[in-house]
Design a protein around this nucleic acid. Sequence first.
RNA 1: GCGGGUGUAACUCAAUGGUAGAGUACCUGCCUUCCAAGCAGGCAACGUGGGUUCGAUUCCCAUCACCCGCUCCA
Length: 500
Amino acid sequence: MDMEKLVSLCKRRGFIFPSSEIYGGLNGFWDYGPLGVELKRNIKEAWWQDNVRSRDDMVGLDCSIIMNPKVWEASGHVGGFSDPMVDCRETKDRYRADQLYVFKFELPAGPLMVAVAGGTAQDAKDSLDERLSKLGNKNALPIKKKDLPTPSVITYTELPEVDRILVIGPTATSAGSLTEPRQFNLMFSTNVGALADASSKAYLRPETAQGIFANFKNVCDTGRVKLPFGIAQIGKSFRNEITPRNFIFRSREFEQMEIEFFCHPSEAAQWYAYWRKARFDWYVRHGLQSGRLRLRDHDPDELAFYSTATADIEYEFPFGTSELEGIAHRGDYDLSQHTKFSGKDLSYFDEEKKERYLPHVIEPSAGADRATLAFLCEAYQEDEMGGETRTVLKFHPRLAPIKAAVFPLVKKDGMPEKGEKIYRDLKRHFNVFFDEKGAIGRRYRRQDEAGTPLGITIDGQTLEDDTVTFRDRDTGRQWRVPSAGVVQAVRDLVEPSTDA
RNA sequence: GCGGGUGUAACUCAAUGGUAGAGUACCUGCCUUCCAAGCAGGCAACGUGGGUUCGAUUCCCAUCACCCGCUCCA
């Protein structure tokens, strides 16, 4: 299955369109069409139902997209999301300026500066020797490697501007190929109010999580909640990505489904293990069963500095294995940051244990668009039916945009009228489709491409014994159901009791 | 942001320095009793902006979007 086929199908059947396409589109933005919006909505509703409404230890929240800018200072986004980047004109490589370490050797003829890329200063130091050997082989070193004095080291960010042309880039052979660091702030900014000055500057949220932390005290004070409990939110977030890519996988406007689960520090490890498994199982239960779904624990050196454990739920997309959801053990980092920046006490008092403490947080953070894409990729299949290749989207019935399509076998003998009645009955409960035109086979195939799990056909026998034919999307198997039982039969398919 | 590729109808493609054809899809009829049948008719396109030219969908430049690689990330 390749990406272009899926993009093509999504366009053809009305799942996903390029945003503002009649004006040439806009990089990093996508629109959901009639089928796509149903699919995505079903995913979000399944998530909300399973994680919020069916639980006793979870409440929901819907925060504003624009918040007080101090929120983003506390969260670290104002600093951490503004990564200055440096390009190499010689090799076209790109680096983060703060992860580019410049080693300065004081030589009689003048300073020699060699840049090495690395996550930390130690990483850079470790690869310095190898780098110098390569330069030596290309005769780019003015003196022998072993004769070099001990260098000093600073990051490219800290390097005085005038020295930049003296630096040899990490893969370059001569000095001066690196550009100045350029700021790429990943947060979209805007201005609140009529005046566009510094005091009115605000940001579109780059994640929904901070709204939850900012409201932690409100929820505790008013929600009659007791630890451990979680707060969930589904909503749009915005990041001015440098490279939006891979269809809706990385876009600049996207939708998150996030949980912040608060608990006693001593129970955090257990809850982390719980959510790690619960979230993985949720995807499997809704159809990601092909083995393309993985649960990957971060290596210690991969962890954010405040996190003691993080696991990614990854899916093997056609363009590579990428993250669907991250489950992070964030400790008390967020609440303590907001305590510090807001000056408000965000600790929790446990009435039973008579103990006051700052809760720890487990954060399962999922991308709704990424989930939609994964379910689309997983569902897309080309198989054989009746000797013909057909394209079919094998969605889990709960997620399918259209639950059932009603077909009068032919347009006579009262079949359209009977079908219309069944369609009306179903429509009160489910998103269903009615189609009386053309050959029955064609109508089945069309619904196969939309991912409709059930075909309901009114045929000659219906007029005799008031039963209709059910046709299974995946197998083509057919069976008869009494007209009166159609609504319940569809409900059994869409809301199986084992799904809770 | 860099390098490479692509851009013609809703989709998949074709042809052409003198304004474009097909298949599928879609719409209207007719016909049809279970897996993309048939007949008749219909709708529908040169990504955008410049330039060269008597004339540009075609050649050139720019731009935008998408795909691949790098980079980055939920």
